[in-house]
């Protein structure tokens, strides 16, 4: 029983981690049609900025956090202003995010006092505090609880933003039909900076929340981003609830196979690809349009 509960908790925490990254990517795709490959990379870069300030320069944690997120926001604004806006369509912009991803990775590698270890310690004020689960012989850390809580808040916040606010309406309208929305006074240049700034800020925050649990480093965040990408497919890249659902299901599948079926080598790490193939097959069998509409209806 304890093992089962622990497996579920592991799956939930990991699922939140995937969700956190995936939600930011869904936000960008849904409002601009661009698949933001750079999401994790930007997050790591912002995480290192915050880490530098907090751990090396002894800033207060929240000040460092704020500066790190602000840095990511500024990068987002600059990227929108100087790159995205000059490119003609979503495809070329997606490729540009790949370039940004490589650039962000390069920056992290190049700064010598960032890359002097394969990973850096970046504790939060909560690190080390845990909540014991009654009746089970393990505990959940505050950092994990904060992570899960943030995902819930972020999910609700984005849902509210996209469904209930004029800003969200404008974002979606511009994405659906830039010319028609321009005709009605809502230009792309009005909402796109907000989208990119918000998404990059979320990316930075995500990494700063993951770092106390996982250490601050590049490789695993990139791998998480890849998995997050896989789960965004479940929601057709637009649906927030389906994305969170997909992330949680993926993480639970991984946790259960790793703990209960560890002898099947490679199965746990195969799940993201199984999931993606399954989604693609379903999309082949069922008309994409219907699925997209369902996803939008659920969005």
């Amino acid at each position: 029983m304890s093992k089962l509960l622990q497996t579920v908790i592991i799956g939930t925490v990991t699922g939140s981690l995937y969700s956190l990254l995936a939600l930011g990517m869904v936000l960008v795709y849904r409002t601009t049609g661009v698949l933001n490959i750079a999401h994790g990379g930007i997050g790591v870069m912002a995480g290192f900025v915050a880490w530098d300030l907090v751990q090396l320069r002894h800033w207060p944690y929240y000040a460092g956090l704020l500066v790190g997120v602000s840095f990511a926001v500024l990068v987002g604004l600059a990227f929108e202003r100087f790159v995205v806006r000059r490119l003609p369509n979503a495809g070329s912009r997606t490729v540009a995010t790949l370039g940004l991803f490589l650039l962000a990775q390069g920056v992290v590698f190049v700064v010598p006092w960032w890359s002097n270890n394969s990973a850096q310690v970046f504790p939060s004020p909560f690190t080390g505090r845990v909540v014991s689960i009654p009746g089970a012989d393990f505990a959940v850390s505050y950092d994990q609880i904060v992570l899960v809580g943030t995902v819930v808040l972020l999910f609700l916040g984005l849902q509210f933003l996209l469904r209930r606010t004029r800003l969200g309406m404008a974002m979606r309208a511009v994405s659906d039909d830039p010319a028609a929305s321009r005709l009605m006074g809502v230009r792309e240049e009005l909402v796109a900076p907000v989208v990119w700034a918000m998404a990059f800020g979320i990316a930075g925050l995500s990494v700063m929340l993951i770092a106390p649990i996982n250490l601050l480093e590049n490789t695993s965040i990139v791998a998480f981003t890849l998995k997050a990408l896989a789960v965004t497919f479940v929601g057709g890249l637009v649906s927030l609830p389906l994305t969170v659902l997909g992330a949680t299901v993926l993480a639970l599948l991984e946790a259960f196979t790793q703990i209960y079926a560890a002898d099947i080598r490679g199965l746990p790490s195969a799940w993201p690809f199984i999931l993606m193939v399954a989604v693609l097959v379903i999309r082949l069998i069922r008309p994409t349009k219907a699925l997209d509409e369902q996803a939008l209806a659920a969005a």
Partner: peptide, 12 residues
């Protein structure tokens, strides 16, 4: 490095 699997190793 992508998936250290530390959490599940501990559980197992």
């Amino acid at each position: 490095f992508d998936d250290p699997g530390t959490t599940t190793l501990l559980a197992r």
